[in-house]
Design a protein around this nucleic acid. Structure first.
Length: 749
DNA sequence: ATAAAGTGACTTTTT
DNA sequence: GTCACTTTAT
């Protein structure tokens, strides 16, 4: 396939851009991924660049995988040798190769967020600090933040007592990682940058290799990532970045959309290309999205233009009595559209700000007997049984991993509690070995081990027994595949028995066994690679990559998880102040701006129809309170919105009078009072007065002009029969089919 | 050493 | 309301 096939002019310009720094600012749905993959194909096929000389960086494994398969399809050959992966995976690879320059050996393991917090918790305990005042999670965030800004413990700015303490914990934390032969997520990037800065020859070697560096989702890079890219491209200076400031939603993880501005500052000769043609949504949806995001400052305005030449139906806004009714409205609406064959299950997505909101939506789905797909909620790798078994494998791979040791020393129960554990750790410390190596020594030399004396006699036999098992696994790990090793471990510790006994009820037991089975299945995929590759992938692969792909059902997901996806019909629920924007973000302008971007991301996922819903009453942590409409609703011009689900006042009345007020208030900063008119006065009142009358002339986007033959309310729904000029008689539901009223009998509007 | 009862926190979570 | 973590009782 020709790499320029079906590309618009801006896309072509990007794909064929000359060498140098290229910044592609790509609006939602503008073919960003397409440009990136075509650019790679162009380089390989037309410019004769070997895949070996290309590095392409993404944030997720999913994105990397997709890019890889798309490029391969396009150029019809393997791109073997290309460094195509996530920031973290590419850096992990570099660190593994350059371990000689680093305080870790090349079988280092990667600690995840839980491991990090666990270590910090221990340090806080050791330091006898108050864990209310120094919450492990917060300290971890502070350390992570420092690393994301390329700051070591020594380089921290210390002004307060708290800073001093955090610095001390940071230092100790880093020492712990080293003694465990481990790095955390942030270190992967941080150390790669340090490596390049301290060893110019290493930097030169890599930057010579990568004649072209390409980056996806550039707006989500943080300082480490930005710096890394500079180093990687420092020899050939070919840096091609694609992003959209307006879709930067990971500020709280250090992402800084201003890197887009920094890029043009640092590279004044950079070529800037704007992609504004949108291949996804209707113009109406784009107009709404634009009016929302235009409220933000410090950005490049983009005039999103729909390629589909379709204005599209208005956004439907529904205010429910409470959050339960909100869920019911969503599911009812989906149900009706499914029943009428207007859409398939997979056409729908329901998006929310917080995971907690999914529960009531799920309940409504369950009640209606409609299948759904939940993205993200509990993570597979976060499950206890998975973490346990991974900890066993990690310990076998790297006996110095004390975090994993602590995790599994009494799982399954070996009668080694807190006190015994402390005495083991103390004995190991005295002998200057890691607890894992102490165990190996016990397994090898039994009671004769020099370490045996310093351990309580009560637990010694148990430790020796466990040590023998551990020694056996360690010796067998070279010959056995990952799957075989895992199987051996599961059997010798009787893990499945333990799960059954330990589970509170039958269901959790079945769940957990199923998870273990799933892990087994996963290990079979690593037939040809070693334990190291498996563990690295376990650490670096996210849950969303392993989601079962049930493509038939509506998808429930957070707004964050929605980035990069698209659906014909999108519901954004919880359009209430304090939820979206979230209460924690309201006081800080930059955070409020990010909430707005989050809303923008949600809106622009919709191809054809967008529903916004909110609830007048919502339960927060058990207690119900009333809510105010999201301030973002006021940013959408009223003429793009249609209010649905109102009861008590006729729709007709509302259209003629309330709409003006709606418009007048739409631009005020206060909660728009027009929403009062959309407010249901009584709970789930089914009766609705018909909007359409016999003889009324209407227009539909697809069917053209027609005349209303009949209209009646059935089960709280207005059903309308319309005779269309072109297509004949259609029976439709007023709330679903978008009709424009051209005239009532003789009167024109 | 472990199970039961009490306490308090609670956004998002690409790696 | 729910979950994880801590205290307390066995």
């Amino acid at each position: 396939m020709d790499v320029l096939h079906n590309l618009n002019q801006q896309q072509q310009q990007a794909v064929t851009a000359p060498e140098g720094q290229i910044l592609v600012l790509a609006g939602p749905g503008s073919g960003k991924t397409r440009v990136l993959t075509r650019r790679i194909a162009y380089l390989v096929q037309y410019m004769g660049v070997s895949p070996f000389h290309i590095m392409a960086v993404t944030f997720t494994n999913k994105a990397a995988r997709e890019m890889k398969s798309r490029v391969e399809t396009m150029i019809g050959e393997s791109i073997h040798g290309m460094w195509l992966g996530t920031f973290h995976a590419n850096c992990a690879r570099i660190l593994r190769r350059e371990a000689a320059h680093l305080p870790i050996s090349n079988n280092y393991i990667i600690f995840d967020a839980d491991d990090q917090v666990g270590i910090i918790k221990n340090i806080i305990k050791e330091e006898k600090l108050n864990d209310k005042q120094y919450r492990p999670y917060d300290v971890q965030a502070a350390i992570s933040n420092a690393k994301n800004n390329l700051i070591t413990a020594e380089e921290m700015i210390v002004e307060t007592q708290r800073d001093r303490i955090v610095q001390r914990i940071y230092r100790k934390y880093q020492a712990t990682l080293e003694s465990n032969n481990a790095v955390d997520f942030d270190d992967l990037l941080f150390w790669a940058v340090r490596l390049f800065e301290e060893y110019p020859a290493v930097r030169e070697a890599y930057s010579r290799q990568f004649r072209h560096v390409l980056v996806d989702e550039f707006q989500d890079t943080n300082l480490v990532q930005y710096t890394l890219l500079k180093h990687l491209s420092s020899f050939h200076n070919n840096l091609f970045v694609v992003g959209d400031e307006d879709q930067s939603i990971y500020r709280w993880r250090g992402a800084d959309y201003r890197n887009v501005l920094r890029f043009t500052d640092d590279y004044p000769k950079a070529t800037k290309i704007l992609l504004e043609e949108n291949y996804r949504s209707t113009q109406l949806i784009l107009d709404a999205a634009t009016s929302v995001i235009d409220e933000n400052l410090h950005r490049t305005h983009k005039q999103l233009q729909a390629a589909r030449n379709l204005q599209g139906p208005k956004i439907i806004l529904h205010t429910a009595y409470d959050d339960r009714d909100e869920g019911i409205f969503v599911v009812d609406t989906i149900h009706r559209l499914l029943d009428r064959g207007k859409a398939a299950g997979s056409d729908f997505a329901v998006m929310y700000r917080t995971n907690a909101q999914s529960r009531l939506i799920e309940e409504a789905f369950l009640k209606a007997g409609i299948d759904y797909r939940l993205v993200g909620a509990q993570r597979f790798y976060g499950r206890r049984e998975i973490k346990d078994l991974i900890a066993y494998l990690r310990l076998v791979h790297n006996p110095d991993d004390a975090v994993s040791f602590n995790r599994i020393i009494n799982v399954p129960k070996r009668g080694i509690g807190e006190v015994s554990l402390q005495s083991i750790l103390l004995a190991a410390q005295k002998a200057q070995v890691s607890p894992g190596r102490l165990l190996l020594s016990l397994g090898l030399e039994k009671e004769k081990s020099a370490l045996a004396d310093s351990l309580p006699s009560r637990i010694l036999p148990k430790l020796i027994y466990f040590g023998e098992q551990f020694l056996y696994w360690s010796e067998a790990k070279e010959e056995l595949s990952v799957a075989e090793l895992l199987e051996t471990i599961i059997e010798s510790i009787e893990y499945e028995n333990y799960l059954e006994e330990d589970s509170v009820n039958r269901d959790t037991s079945i769940d957990r066994l199923a998870n273990v089975h799933e892990l087994r299945r996963l290990t079979y995929e690593y037939k040809d690679s070693g334990l190291d590759t498996f563990l690295e992938n376990m650490a670096l692969v996210s849950d969303q990559d392993t989601l079962p792909e049930n493509t038939e059902a509506p998808t429930l997901l957070t707004l964050h998880a929605a980035k990069g996806l698209e659906f014909p019909i999108v519901f954004i629920v919880g359009m209430d102040q304090d939820l979206l924007p979230h209460s924690r973000s309201i006081s800080e302008p930059e955070e409020l701006a990010e909430e707005r971007r989050l809303f923008y991301v949600g809106i622009t996922r919709a191809k054809d129809q967008l529903y916004l819903t909110r609830a007048e009453r919502r339960s927060f942590f058990g207690t119900t309170s009333t809510t105010l409409p999201s301030e973002f609703l006021a940013d959408i011009p009223s003429e793009l919105i249609e209010i649905a689900g109102k009861a008590g006042i006729t729709r007709h009345h509302q259209r003629n009078t309330d709409y003006a007020q709606f418009r007048d208030n739409a631009r005020t900063t206060q909660a728009p009072s027009w929403l009062d008119f959309a407010r249901p006065e009584t709970r789930r009142q089914p009766e609705v007065d018909p909007i359409y009358h016999i003889g009324m002339r209407v227009h539909h986007a697809m069917w053209g002009e027609g005349v209303v033959i009949n209209s009646f309310v059935d089960d709280g729904e207005e059903a309308v029969d319309i005779e269309f000029k072109e297509t004949g008689l259609k029976k439709v539901l007023a709330s679903i089919v978008k009709l424009e009223i051209l005239g009532e009998g003789e009167n024109h509007v």
